[in-house]
Amino acid sequence: SFQYVPVQLQGGAPWGFTLKGGLEHCEPLTVSKIEDGGKAALSQKMRTGDELVNINGTPLYGSRQEALILIKGSFRILKLIVRRRN
């Protein structure tokens, strides 16, 4: 089963996490790295392996390109929903 975790990061880029996968690579869009001391790490809500399913209220369909555009369009606040295996 899965758990959906809301994450809100503040203060602008860099957000402190790296993505891998996506439709382009025929795999889920997941968090591959969280930078020590970065905003994602400080939130204590994101983990490597989390799947990104929503950015700023926009549902994602797995495209890494789409996710990067939405993330780049976030100035002060980035709201994410990640899906994690229980």
Score class of each variant (00 low, 15 high):
R64S: 08
L9I: 01
G38Q: 01
T48E: 15
F2P: 05
A41G: 09
I69A: 15
E35V: 12
A67M: 01
Y61C: 15
R84M: 00
L29S: 03
S43C: 07
G12A: 02
R64T: 08
G38P: 01
K72H: 11
K72F: 06
N86Q: 15
L42K: 12
F17V: 00
L9P: 06
L80V: 09
P28G: 03
V5P: 02
R76W: 05
L23F: 10
R76K: 15
L70N: 06
I34A: 02
S74P: 09
E35M: 11
G62M: 00
P28N: 08
L80G: 02
P28K: 09
E24M: 06
F75K: 15
T48L: 13
G73V: 04
T48P: 14
P6F: 11
N86G: 09
T30P: 03
K20M: 10
R47Y: 09
V31Y: 06
E27W: 07
I77D: 15
S43G: 08
A41Q: 13
Q3C: 10
T58V: 13
L29R: 02
R83C: 07
K79L: 04
G16C: 03
G22K: 03
P6G: 10
A13Q: 09
G73I: 05
R64H: 13
G38D: 01
S1M: 08
G16I: 05
Q65L: 08
A67I: 03
Y61I: 14
E24H: 11
G62E: 05
E35W: 10
E66P: 01
S1W: 04
P59N: 15
G49I: 03
S63A: 08
D50N: 06
P14Q: 03
G38H: 02
L29M: 02
R47A: 09
I71C: 06
I69W: 10
I34K: 04
P59C: 09
R64A: 11
Q3M: 10
L68Q: 13
L9M: 10
V5I: 15
K79D: 14
V53A: 11
E35P: 08
S63N: 11
H25S: 14
L9E: 00
F2N: 08
T30A: 08
Q8E: 15
T30C: 10
F17G: 00
I81T: 13
N54D: 09
L23K: 15
S1C: 13
V82P: 00
E27D: 08
R47T: 09
I71A: 03
L78Q: 06
S43H: 06
L68P: 02
V82A: 05
L19D: 00
S43N: 12
G73F: 04
L80Y: 09
Q8H: 10
K20V: 11
L9A: 06
G16L: 04
I77R: 11
